Amino acid sequence: MFDLKTIIKAKTIDQAVKLLIENPDAKLIAGGTDVLIKLKQGKDGYARLVDIHDLEALNYIRFDDEKNILIGSGVVFSQIIQSDIIRDTIPMLCEAAKSVGGPQIRNIATMGGNICNGVPSADSAPSLFALNALLVIQREKGVRQIPIADFYKGPGRVNLNQGDVLIGFKITRDNYQGYKGCYYKYAMRNAMDIATIGCAVSLKTKNHVLVDYRIAYGVAGPVPLRCHATEQAVLHQAVSNALVDKISETVENDVNPRTSWRASRDFRMNIIKELSKRVTKEVFKRAGEKL
């Protein structure tokens, strides 16, 4: 049984903000795939909910006038998979969406919920990190935008105050145009499993030289992360197998996986290094490069 005391349906984003402020113990619910589990488990702080499920203002995938990609926080993963805009510009996000749960989960779980849950295993997070995504947050005093790297404060903790509502994601044109990318999820089962390690790579080459490189992981630390030292170490070098090996050798200095009941630190480190090779090679292939 759910120990649910109140649930209030918000009809607009502004009303959701107001309801959260008026009910300081309340939390948002959209798809509910994470919140309802916590509620059933009796976790503190989930007995009072503000429902933003099916708010049309949060359900969109479109370009703005500057060809930036805008994604509403209420978009579900099946919409990401089916979107021509996403498939044509940032297919790595489609790959991430396809790895989430099963069809039933993908039809109801939202992008916003996946990020706001704050867990390092969120499948959409590594791709959004590699794309330098901006998070658009509405609050009582207006709208703010923050880089996704500034959103995670620790395991299960994100940069949202009471009254804040994540309303969308913005991926600027200069962060996807000319780039190729890929997301790969390693899990113990082939379907419907939490990531043991998730890896996203986005890169750009010119004249067979790596001019920009981004590699991001889930479950490689307490929060999703970019490997900035590795990225800097391999810039402006010729595409080669030796470069791929260097990435694998360097990346372990950027991550801090932990031992849990699902996998040991050493096992995760091996997967991190191997995925850096596999995913980078795949993206080089997509970029028309030969190794």
Rank of each mutant, 00 (worst) to 15 (best):
L93G: 02
C94L: 05
C94N: 06
C94M: 09
C94V: 06
C94I: 02
E95L: 01
A96G: 15
A96Q: 07
A96S: 15
A96Y: 01
A96E: 13
A96C: 10
A97Q: 00
A97L: 01
A97G: 01
K98Q: 11
K98L: 08
V100Q: 15
V100D: 11
V100K: 04
V100I: 13
V100C: 10
V100A: 09
V100Y: 09
G101C: 11
G101K: 07
G101E: 14
G102C: 07
P103M: 12
P103Y: 15
P103L: 09
Q104V: 15
Q104H: 08
Q104W: 06
I105G: 06
I105M: 12
I105Q: 10
R106Y: 10
R106N: 13
N107L: 08
N107P: 09
I108S: 14
I108D: 07
I108Y: 13
A109T: 08
T110D: 04
T110R: 00
T110N: 06
T110M: 02
T110K: 02
M111C: 12
M111N: 04
G112H: 13
G112K: 12
G113T: 03
G113S: 14
N114T: 13
N114I: 12
N114A: 14
C116Y: 05
N117T: 15
N117G: 12
G118L: 04
G118N: 05
G118I: 01
V119W: 06
V119K: 10
V119E: 14
P120I: 02
S121D: 11
S121L: 10
A122D: 13
A122W: 08
A122N: 06
A122S: 15
A122L: 06
D123H: 03
D123S: 05
S124D: 07
S124M: 04
S124H: 03
A125V: 05
A125C: 15
A125S: 11
P126R: 02
S127V: 04
S127K: 02
L128S: 06
L128M: 14
F129E: 03
F129A: 02
F129L: 11
F129D: 01
F129I: 00
A130Q: 05
A130G: 12
L131Q: 01
L131P: 00
L131I: 00
L131K: 00
N132P: 06
A133Y: 08
A133D: 11
A133S: 11
L134I: 01
L134Q: 09
L134S: 05
L135D: 05
L135H: 05
V136P: 00
V136I: 13
I137P: 11
I137Q: 13
I137F: 14
Q138T: 04
Q138R: 09
Q138H: 09
Q138K: 08
R139L: 08
R139V: 04
R139C: 15
E140W: 10
E140M: 08
G142P: 14
G142S: 14
G142T: 14
R144M: 12
Q145H: 08
Q145V: 01
Q145F: 01
I146T: 07
I146A: 15
I146V: 10
I146P: 13
I146R: 07
